[in-house]
Nucleic acid binder design. Structure first.
Lengths: 239, 239
DNA sequence: AAGCTTCATTGGTAACACTATTAGGGCGCG
DNA sequence: CGCGCCCTAATAGTGTTACCAATGAAGCTT
């Protein structure tokens, strides 16, 4: 959604085929792709294949060594924060695991981010949150799920960016993927739960008022609920 | 420390010069590097320059467009979780900011990671932590700072990996960079503080005993102290 | 077991054709 | 006269081919 790669270039098209395949575990760790095979398989020049491999290498999906070829690395070594890789994995067979990990990450980061936002955000930024929250409430009532999703993403994004911490801000893409994925895989209620909306209002007002501890607690309530909902889904064997 | 790029290849050497320069802010966002200039400046072929640019592009440091050239993106858009980029920025002029952001991230993630480790780690993994902690205590007394650092990194790494969350586990590199950077920039006491060591012992025993809440609280005490120490350092104008 | 040879495969170079993008000029129209 | 549209040309990056160098794993030799 946020950071689509440019599919006009050839190496990106190659990447868009090989990357998801590796991310999905279709190649065992240790298996080998040679440049020539890649080039032949996709009908592209060696140069293009090499550029694709360079990118895979910088994501730590593979290593490229002379005489050996391009070797797939074990998943533990992948750069799991790379936005492209996150998307590839969310499209793959392990998407539920991936979604759980990402949601637990959100649960860890967003409460402190809300606290920092209350402390470090400018007064204008902070009060703009309540305005945004107002629109969320209205849209939630209207039942337009897609519009609500956009506002929800924007809400969480702004808090992360107001936190004054670049690493937190760097998770906006993740949060947007998680929220989007959650609706896409129908892990969301058809209408936003009033309680959840209330909590968002509490977060907005706490941040506006500079109440770091309240903001953290309210945000914690939001994300803990999300984690719990995901666990229910898993133990219920739902899918 | 953990993930050194392979400097034997030319494009990696180019990358090792251009990357840190961009990361250090030596090029304004919007400024343009053409392939020809890069190739000439480093005395390499266009192909090599292109491969380096591909990698920079996948880190979102630059965009490459026909007719325009290779444009530096604003820092907000960079992939700040990329291990290479983290290292480059830690070597640059904003390193203290970077270290603060990373430390706050640790503070957010490690307590829940410890809780998950207590719940999800295998009995062997969990009890091996107390063994490791024993060695830390011994080494802390001996005063061998370098050996202590290695054990400390290993301690936190294992907890992240025991957490059963790939995103948390993916931060091991970050934690290792932060701990290493902290000693390198002399933000550490000459000898580990007995209180901090005690807290590590609490963490190890809580995880061994499967006490998630205790593990989280003890880990929170550790990281909160680190954050506080960093804030003192900053307000004291130290460096 | 140590060292040597082989050779598949990546790494690097060069030169060229193709293509996308945009600046600017010219043209027509209001 | 001024505005807007279209065409053209210049300027990058993009993609291809061909070739040689360097590497290092595997097997062979001693």
């Amino acid at each position: 959604m946020s950071a689509a790669p440019d599919h006009r270039t050839l190496h990106n098209r190659v990447l868009a085929e090989v990357g998801p395949a590796i991310a999905a575990g279709e190649y065992e760790p240790g298996s080998v792709l040679t440049l020539d095979r890649l080039a032949n398989r996709f009908g592209v020049s060696r140069t293009v294949a090499r550029e694709a491999v360079r990118v895979l290498e910088s994501m730590r999906l593979v290593v490229s060594r002379p005489r050996t070829g391009v070797t797939v690395r074990p998943p533990e070594e992948w750069s799991v924060y790379d936005p492209q890789l996150i998307r590839w994995r969310l499209a793959g067979p392990r998407r539920i695991d991936q979604l759980r990990s990402l949601t637990e990450l959100r649960a860890a980061v967003e409460p402190p981010a809300a606290a920092f936002a209350a402390r470090r955000g400018s007064p204008e930024e902070r009060s703009s949150l309540t305005e945004l929250n107002g629109r969320m409430v209205a849209t939630g009532r209207s039942g337009d799920l897609e519009a609500f999703l956009r506002l929800d993403v924007e809400f969480h994004r702004r808090i992360l960016q107001m936190s004054g911490n670049e690493m937190f801000a760097g998770l906006t893409g993740v949060v947007s993927e998680v929220l989007t994925g959650r609706t896409e895989y129908h892990l969301m209620p058809r209408q936003p739960r009033p309680e959840a909306l209330n909590l968002h209002t509490h977060v907005a007002e706490a941040i506006s008022g500079g109440l770091a501890d309240v903001a953290r607690a309210a945000m914690r309530a939001i994300v803990d609920e999300v984690v719990a909902a995901l666990e229910d889904e898993e133990t219920a064997g739902g899918g």
